[in-house]
């Protein structure tokens, strides 16, 4: 017994926190990617996440298969992302960080409203596939099979992104472009194509997060609003633009929220912001962030 709670409950609560944390990682990766490589603060991240969930509803009705849907949705949302970068964000590069911020802020409202008009305001049903229904005994208690799958999917996604960015020549070009776009351009590489791909990738990941979250968090037009906040907290705590930071911060935020929910449920929501404030006081650039990136 610790603090009046049995050890098994605390262990399960901790595990729940890590699982919740992996959802936070999933939510934050796309945002972190776009910010880290383009210095674009994508306020439409939550809207792309919501688009992912609705694309999931659409494709699962059309294809009838969850796994196929999971494969198709990132491409569909990524395609929207490509269009947004090409025609909306691109003209704003070099004008300061607040221009794309304002643009994506407005875009988020438009996307939500379009979905509301097309699909209605009350939301759509979306169930986990039959194979992942139900709970699995993980030793300290029962845990939803679907959440275990989401943890695995997030791990695969993060590793794949890391390999792509760090170990491939495309990744090398992308990282070089983020560090000094001028030189990359001089070397004869079409940097605007690189930025296009990165933005598309970031939105595709947001879409994937949306469809993966749909069976847990329901599908409705405003589902992205709170997600944006959660993703920002994780990104800021981890350090803007750091993939490793997003992973560590996501898990940390998950555990903090979960433990607070047990000991002081009224504080559950506030706890992640308290954590953020604390981190910012000690390390203003975030846990893994580089100093002066925003300057």
């Amino acid at each position: 017994m610790i603090g009046g709670f049995p050890i098994e409950l605390l262990a399960l609560q901790l595990f729940t926190g890590l699982a919740l944390g992996s959802v936070f990682v999933l939510l934050a990766v796309g945002l972190s990617l776009i910010f880290g490589l383009l210095t674009v603060v994508n306020f439409a991240h939550g809207a792309f996440y919501m688009l992912g969930a609705y694309a999931g509803v659409f494709f699962i009705g059309y294809l009838g298969n969850f796994w196929l849907t999971l494969a198709v949705v990132p491409f569909a949302v990524g395609a929207v992302g490509l269009g947004v970068e090409r025609w909306l964000v691109r003209p704003l590069y070099g004008r300061g960080i607040d221009y794309p911020l304002m643009l994506t802020f407005g875009l988020a409202y438009i996307l939500v409203e379009v979905v509301r008009i097309l699909f209605g305001a009350e939301g759509m049903p979306f169930d986990a596939p039959d194979a992942l229904m139900g709970a699995v005994n993980i030793g300290v208690g029962y845990f939803p099979a679907y959440r275990l799958f989401v943890i695995a999917a997030t791990a695969v996604l993060v590793v794949a992104l890391w390999l792509f960015l760090e170990k491939t020549s495309y990744g090398l070009v992308i990282r070089a472009g983020a560090r000094d776009s001028e030189i990359v351009r001089v070397l004869g590489i079409d940097i605007s194509l690189v930025w296009l791909v990165v933005f598309g990738l970031g939105t595709a990941v947001a879409g994937l997060a949306g469809v993966l979250s749909a069976p847990m968090r329901s599908v409705f037009p405003d589902m992205g609003t709170t997600v944006l906040v959660e993703a920002f907290v994780v990104t800021v705590v981890g350090g803007m633009g750091s993939l490793a930071g997003a992973v560590v911060a996501g898990l940390l935020v998950g555990v903090v929220v979960s433990m607070t929910s047990l000991f002081a449920p009224a504080m559950a929501e506030v706890s992640m912001f308290a954590l953020m404030a604390l981190v910012l006081l000690v390390r203003p650039q975030g846990l893994f962030g580089k100093k002066g990136l925003m300057g």
Binding site: F5, P6, E8, L9, L12, Q13, T16, G17, A19, L20, V23, G141, Y142, R147, M216, R217, T226, V227, E230, V257, S258, T260, S261, L262, P265, A266, A268, E269
Partner: peptide, 20 residues
């Protein structure tokens, strides 16, 4: 008797204590 903040998105942290 577990309270959760209004408009919570993820209820997983509140559920283990109920199960227990």
């Amino acid at each position: 008797e577990v309270t959760h903040p209004l408009a919570s998105k993820d209820f997983s942290p509140f559920l283990p204590q109920i199960q227990a």
